[in-house]
């Protein structure tokens, strides 16, 4: 499952060439991802459990921050209702670049079991998502695996800010990550 030995030197066989500055910056970024506490419903409890005693999230360098300006990753855990969608987008916009989004649980991925009038059918309708995490509620180990997947994804990115910006909604369609 997880690769415990990470080789920062190689570019993992990719067509783009990562410079050593890229690798250094990506090492720094991936090993200290600070999530924004965006727990909405039941998945928030599993997110808290993953940050608590048994499944310690701190060993990955994550510290849960409440303010969007100080956070890198937004973990949307739980059902996004239509009343809340405006605030979720607003908080996403307030996050500073570089930022990533993990959509945790079925409700955030696709609306989940709540196929009703008041639920946004998938957070990716309004926020571009990097990693989708299935489960209802996903185990804390699954969330940590998703975080490690995100770290792998970050290490492949170029450190150039202009290429990674997510401001324009219309060029999002090519960037959707695969389901794990």
């Amino acid at each position: 499952m997880a690769q415990h030995q990470v080789n920062y030197a190689s570019a993992a066989g990719l067509p783009i060439a990562l410079t050593s500055v890229d690798k250094l910056v990506n090492w720094g970024r991936s090993n200290s991802l600070w999530p924004l506490t965006y727990g909405l419903a039941c998945c928030a409890i599993e997110m808290m459990a993953s940050g608590a005693s048994r499944y310690d999230f701190d060993r990955m360098g994550t510290i849960f921050r409440a303010s969007p300006r100080q956070a890198d990753v937004m973990i949307l855990a739980g059902t996004l209702s239509k009343k809340h969608s405006e605030f979720a987008r607003r908080l996403y916009d307030q996050m500073t670049e570089p930022k990533w989004v993990i959509s945790m649980g079925s409700c955030a991925n696709t609306g989940g079991m709540f196929n009703t009038y008041a639920t946004v059918q998938g957070v990716d309708r309004i926020i571009p998502v990097d990693i989708y995490l299935p489960g209802c509620a996903p185990r804390p180990e699954t969330l940590q695996y998703a975080m490690m997947m995100l770290q792998k994804k970050i290490r492949k990115e170029s450190a150039d800010m202009k290429k990674n910006t997510k401001q324009d909604l219309t060029n999002q369609t090519g960037k959707r990550a695969r389901l794990i």
Binding site: S85, E86, Y117, A118
Partner: peptide
Amino acid sequence: LFGDEFASWYEVDKIF
């Protein structure tokens, strides 16, 4: 149950 037209486009209209 799935909501009428107003409901299905609510979040898109509101945000974008």
